[in-house]
Design a protein around this nucleic acid. Structure first.
Lengths: 158, 158
DNA sequence: GTCGATGCAAAGGCTTTGCACAGCC
DNA sequence: GGCTGTGCAAAGCCTTTGCATCGAC
């Protein structure tokens, strides 16, 4: 295979060429948002407001409207991924290669989350999709639960 | 009615006693909302707005604010269950016995959904919960996909 | 009769959008 | 230099809340 050294997903060059392919541009704001997620590493979930705040703290001013626009853009490009965690509102994380089979254990009380993987889940999603003639895009398991600390504080089950 | 047999979950008697246990009351509005879901049967997903519209059509007027309050109440009592389908906004469905292992195939384009079950998913959720010391409440797999019709209309992937 | 529930309308988050200006290619 | 992107503020959606009245118990 040619593809020499695949540059890290989301590097400025990657981002630039992906954008140009769509007739769009690489701006400092877009770099800042993506690089924030890269600094944090995979598995960090940020809301739009948190992205905005962290950029402000890093002296990298980006307006909130642009944060929203950029999160949507990067998600549509697959560089970020939107989570489905109603407890905490909309959140985004880095979209790695694992993104089709990438699951969350969420504490419904304090909102803390753990990630895990399990190929059986993707297999179940694929089976269901093929049974109904759907084309699978992504398979997200959310396990709503109580973390050890909250389970202690709230002994009665849902 | 004597009601010798165990009344179906969510019957007026059930609802009344559950409410009274919490110092709350059985009102016509609350009956109307729950009975709407029962008429539709399990596996139907309605937004607050849809509940409101359907009640209006059935000449059972309930204000939208009360619909919201009632959906929240019934969910907290476990008689309804909130779905996590970001594509279509917040939705509710009847909370049956299957609710711990109850999954959705969602078309990201047209929003249509299919339900399926697969014990392997619950097993995966339980494994993850126990690994991290969490107490599992509910296990929801959302398979984001394209339904047959939309897949045809939009041949390119994510 | 009491106290919780309802309806209405107003307020509240969060997110998107219109517009003039800035800046990437 | 053209056309996309940005910032700001205003608008929009969905949901919740304050308050007077109603009605279940």
């Amino acid at each position: 295979m040619p593809v020499p050294v695949r540059s890290p997903a989301g590097s400025p060059e990657d981002l630039r060429s992906s954008l140009h392919g769509r007739g769009q541009r690489l701006t400092p704001q877009r770099q800042r948002v993506l690089s924030l997620f890269e600094r944090l590493g995979e598995g960090r979930h940020l809301s739009a407001e948190e992205v905005h705040q962290r950029l402000l703290q890093a002296e990298e001013r980006v307006s909130l409207a642009t944060v929203y626009r950029t999160l949507r853009l990067l998600s549509s490009m697959g560089m970020l991924q939107e989570l489905e965690l109603p407890e905490g509102g909309r959140r985004f994380e880095l979209g790695g290669d694992h993104h089709r089979d990438h699951h969350h254990l969420v504490c419904v009380r304090c909102g803390c989350t753990e990630e895990f993987e399990n190929p059986a889940v993707l297999a179940a999603g694929e089976a269901a999709a093929s049974l109904h003639g759907f084309r699978l895009l992504e398979c997200v398991l959310n396990v709503r639960a109580l973390c050890p600390r909250c389970a202690q504080a709230e002994p009665n089950a849902t």
